[in-house]
Design a binder for these strands. Structure first.
Length: 802
DNA sequence: AGCACGCCGACT
DNA sequence: GTCGGCGTGCTC
């Protein structure tokens, strides 16, 4: 007797543990650790993951049920992944099932469908139900739900006329293509002899096929080559000249052919960094490197050569890039160096495409994965190197459960495989740099640009002076002059709109009312191309009111600096300029991003205007001017990382200019020109910024001096939300040691989201071994008592946003 | 979570 | 008498 320990697909506290199931004897060979199985759970069937196999079970025999079905013949999660899931569960306080699911592509998740299956004669059913069962004995329950017939169904179930069947359905499908397998020469000759002269097309086809005996071809290709239609091919196949076969294929999202590139000569700095990394690769030692290199210093070339070495050792590499910089330019560099050995995973792919990329990794068809956060779970079995580019990016932290940080997972996997992890950035996260200084990470510095170009000259423009001089436009005099100059010289400009938290909204000029979302405490954002107002948090949308909802004034206008508005202004100021606007609206379509960048690269526009998405990875020789329209907007966000984020953004954006022969110039427009984050980004001067910001963090008691954890409570009723948030704070204060500070409860930065009021408590601590146990106890209280009142409580250890 | 079971008030 | 409301408890 063999038993499988199964984690079932139910995200709930009381079932967050393995359940034992009997493995039917026939399947003992088939069921392995990490397989997905279908199991009966209570009255229904659910998906489960096999996390253990034993020969004994402590559960009384009569309770143990057998596994219903095997969903994967080969195991889909390695033992490493099962261990990683357990670690994630404890590290981020999540359900084990969520940790397991997050490691798999969406196509391997399942959906549950209920069917009402006829049990007996149709005529026994109530007349209302009979029409549904005229053609079939199995009807999807949702049909009855739509027709409001659930009650009669329920009764029919009770009377035994209908049985409810819970089905577990796989979402993803392996894509198959029908191909033609051409038979051998002799067989073809046989066929030819049987054919009369009255079928000249068939004869011609068989003669053509004889030249391709034994090959496997696409039916369309054959038809095209012989100038025939499918019907001719079909009759020849019927006569035994060939056969249709199904072949598994990968959906290939890459249509573009890339040329193979060669190694670049390394600078001394790059070479030194690479040597250290290679030493760790060769020694099979887990070491975390912080590769701090200014923009244009050639970090990517270091990555590429380190990967080359890893491949030479027969091992695999993972490269993580933030989603927004997963531009074609970046992925092309990897594709062009390593060709078919690279799989790419990002959100732009369809579920099926993602699944295929994942399978390439699973089946060992590729050696390198380039992808966004979730690619850290790429199912390699012999990892040799992990790289996080732009390691400071907040997109590496998943915002919902499991709230993992890709950096932590990377280091965990690095330890598992004894392989190095490279964290690369021009502007490292403060925590990372602090760890490098402490010696936890090995610091590698690239202080010079690879081709020895000068850094762009950065001008900081005081917008207050512009305002006093009577310039009310969003372009300052110096920026306008520089822009005109580039237009004359036929050089290109990148204009960056730091739009975070400052998008266009509708405001009443008379009473100052802004149009709010009915579900969230957030102003609605104006979307021009649909002429609608939208909430970015819950998706609510409505048409623009003609009069102010408060004072009925008709003087209601949209306000703020959206990209469209900037575009209009550019056309007013520089009618001859060709502008390419890149934002969520213009890049919505698949591949639009790529097309626009290509067009800009070919010089089809003079100005590239955009938001965050153009701040990274952009590398064109003709860009000599960068304009930052409003540097301050990210500086005033209610976030302790505001200064750090602004510094990072400014540095990234200015790095787009003058990366090749031509010298670059940057204009940063700001109302707070003296702020250190802006001043120090001028020379990409990270160390002084680090010192300065560390000082600020020390005083305010924020990371990296303190760790933080955030407990959030929400409820539809304000009073209840506040009451339970109060209980949370009280509980934490009572149970945590005195040198831990608990701040709150305070209202969350968005006080109401999707009609739920949100309160939060912030915990700051240095060392607190009791934290996790206390939080677990709190969660236990919540899950056993509070949850019934409709309270939702979430815990985020090391949150990126407060 | 999702579902059955069971207890209690309301209505044909 | 029966229907359906919701509180309780269990799932190998």
């Amino acid at each position: 007797m063999r038993f499988a320990q199964v984690i079932v697909d139910v995200s709930a506290y009381p079932v967050d543990r393995p359940f034992d199931y009997l493995i039917p004897e026939d399947w003992e060979e088939l069921i392995d650790l990490g397989c997905r199985v279908k199991v009966p759970f209570g009255p229904r069937n659910v998906l489960g993951f096999v996390v253990g196999i034993t020969s004994e079970s402590e559960v009384p025999v009569e309770k143990v049920k057998p596994i219903t079905e095997i969903l994967d013949i080969e195991s889909i999660l390695t033992e490493e992944m099962l261990n990683l899931a357990k670690w994630l569960k404890h590290q981020t306080i999540c359900y084990e099932i969520d940790a397991l699911q997050v490691m798999l592509p969406g196509a391997l998740r399942v959906k549950y469908e209920k069917y009402a299956v006829l049990n007996g004669e149709v005529s026994h059913l109530p007349t209302t139900l009979q029409p549904y069962y005229e053609k079939t004995a199995k009807v999807n329950l949702s049909q009855f739900e739509k027709a409001n017939l659930l009650k009669p169904i329920k009764r029919a179930v009770k009377d035994g006329l209908i049985i409810i069947d819970n089905e577990v359905k796989q979402k993803g499908q392996v894509k198959q293509v029908r191909k033609v397998q051409i038979h051998s020469q002799e067989q073809l000759e046989n066929v030819l002899q049987q054919m009369g002269k009255r079928a000249p097309k068939q004869v011609a086809l068989v003669e053509w096929l004889m030249q391709h005996a034994g090959e496997i071809l696409l039916p369309d290709d054959i038809c095209e080559a012989v100038h025939i239609t499918n019907s001719v091919l079909n009759s020849v196949i019927d006569k035994g000249a060939a056969a249709y076969i199904q072949e598994e294929v990968y959906r290939d999202p890459f249509t573009k052919n890339v040329e193979k590139t060669e190694f670049l000569q390394l600078t001394d700095e790059q070479d030194h960094a690479l040597t250290k990394i290679i030493a760790a690769i060769d020694d099979q030692r887990q070491e975390t490197f912080l590769l701090h290199g200014i923009t244009g210093s050639g970090k990517t070339e270091v990555y590429l050569q380190a990967i080359q070495r890893t491949i030479a050792d027969g091992k695999e590499s993972i490269v993580l890039v933030p989603e927004i910089s997963l531009t074609p330019q970046m992925t092309e560099r990897f594709k062009s160096r390593f060709g078919d050995e690279v799989a790419v995973m990002h959100s732009g792919l369809s579920v099926g495409e993602k699944y295929d990329e994942w399978r390439k990794v699973q089946q060992g068809k590729v050696k390198v994965v380039v992808g966004a956060r979730s690619a850290i779970f790429a199912p390699f079995k012999n990892l040799g190197l992990i790289i996080l580019d732009e390691e400071h990016e907040s997109t590496y932290k998943q915002e919902d459960s499991p709230r993992y940080h890709a950096r932590d997972v990377a280091i965990w996997r690095g330890k598992y495989y004894n392989c190095p992890v490279i964290l690369g950035s021009a502007t490292p996260a403060l925590e990372s740099f602090a760890r490098a200084k402490k010696g936890v990470y090995t610091l590698l510095t690239l202080a010079h640009r690879a081709k020895n170009q000068a850094l762009p000259t950065v001008h900081i423009v005081d917008m207050r002076e512009q305002l006093q001089a009577g310039n009310r436009s969003m372009f300052s005099e110096p920026l306008m002059e520089a822009l005109q100059d580039r237009l004359n010289k036929k050089e290109q400009t990148v204009l960056f709109l730091n739009r975070r938290g400052y998008s266009s909204f509708v405001i009443c000029r008379d009473c100052g009312t802004t149009v709010q979302c009915p579900n969230c405490d957030i102003s609605l954002t104006y979307h021009r191309y649909q002429e609608k107002l939208k909430c970015h948090y819950c998706g609510h949308d409505e048409y623009i009111p003609e009069t102010c909802p408060e004072c009925q004034s008709e003087n209601i206008r949209y306000f703020g600096t959206g990209t469209q508005k900037v575009e209009e202004e550019i056309y007013k100021l520089f009618p001859e300029a060709r502008v390419l606007r890149m934002d969520v609206d213009t890049t919505k379509q698949k591949g639009a991003h790529e097309k626009m960048l290509d067009a800009f690269g070919r010089g089809e526009a003079d100005i590239l205007l955009g938001t965050q998405m153009i701040a990274k990875g952009l590398d064109f020789p003709n860009i000599t001017l960068v304009g930052v329209l409003s540097a301050d907007t990210s500086l005033h966000l209610p976030d302790y990382r505001a200064a750090e984020k602004t510094f990072q953004l400014m540095t990234q954006v200015s790095g787009r200019a003058g990366r090749h022969e031509k010298l670059g110039e940057v204009f940063v427009q700001t109302y707070t020109p003296d702020h250190y984050a802006i001043q120090l980004s001028k020379d990409q001067d990270y160390p002084p910024f680090y010192e300065r910001e560390m000082h600020a963090r020390h005083i305010a008691g924020y990371p990296p001096y303190y760790y933080i954890a955030l407990v959030q409570v929400s409820h539809e009723d304000v009073m209840l939300a506040a009451e339970y948030a109060g209980r949370v704070a009280e509980y934490l204060r009572e149970n945590l040691s005195f040198n831990v500070s608990v701040i709150g409860p305070t209202t969350a930065s968005i006080a109401r989201l999707q009609n739920r009021y949100r309160y939060q408590c912030l915990i700051k601590y240095k060392v607190e071994p009791q934290l996790i146990p206390v939080l677990l106890q709190l969660i236990k209280m919540y899950r056993s008592e509070w949850i019934k009142k409709g309270i939702v409580l979430t815990v985020d250890l090391d949150p990126t946003m407060i």
